[in-house]
Simulated scan of single mutants.
Amino acid sequence: MATNRSRRLRKKLCVDEFQELGFELNLNLKEDLSEKAVDAFLEAFLRDAMTANGLGYVGGDDFGLVCLSKRGSVSEEQRSLVEAWLKGRSEVVDFTASPLMDVWYPENAINPA
């Protein structure tokens, strides 16, 4: 594939200066939670940790990808806010948040700022 791309094409492909960053999230919830409690947790998670911080979540109740809700990249600050919110929840046994990564091409390295 050609590497000499026009600015318009780089933007369309979300590469080079248009790279978009996000992170993977693995959640381990308490096993004794009812389905209703899991649903309530997910609603609060989407409302308070995602939407309130301008983020979007694609996935399920145990694994997903966090990205910006519009074009652009998640910041380390936003990632830290999500981690802090999860640490304060009694429903969560533990979780792992990956380092920031390219959400369109996960195998690609992060471009220097």
Rank of each mutant, 00 (worst) to 15 (best):
V74E: 00
T3W: 05
P106A: 11
M1I: 09
D102G: 04
F18S: 06
R89H: 06
E107W: 12
L33N: 01
R47M: 08
A44K: 13
L33Y: 02
E76R: 13
R5W: 06
Q19Y: 07
R5L: 15
R89V: 02
E91Q: 14
L46T: 02
N4L: 12
K12Q: 14
S75M: 07
E83I: 03
S73H: 07
K36G: 05
T51E: 14
P99H: 12
G88E: 05
E35H: 07
F45M: 04
T96E: 13
P112K: 11
E31L: 09
L13G: 00
V74F: 01
S75F: 04
L29D: 03
L55G: 02
N108Y: 13
D16W: 04
V38I: 15
E76H: 11
N26S: 14
T96K: 14
E31R: 11
R10W: 01
G72P: 05
L55E: 01
P106H: 08
E43L: 13
G22S: 09
A84W: 02
R71E: 12
K30N: 13
D39R: 11
T3E: 10
E35C: 05
G64K: 04
K87A: 06
G54D: 07
L65M: 15
N53C: 10
R79A: 04
A52E: 11
M101Y: 02
V82N: 00
E91P: 03
S34E: 12
K12H: 13
S98P: 04
F95N: 01
E83G: 08
R71T: 11
L65G: 01
A40Q: 09
E107A: 15
L68R: 14
R8V: 14
R5E: 04
T51Y: 08
L13V: 05
Y105L: 11
E77A: 14
R7M: 09
F18G: 05
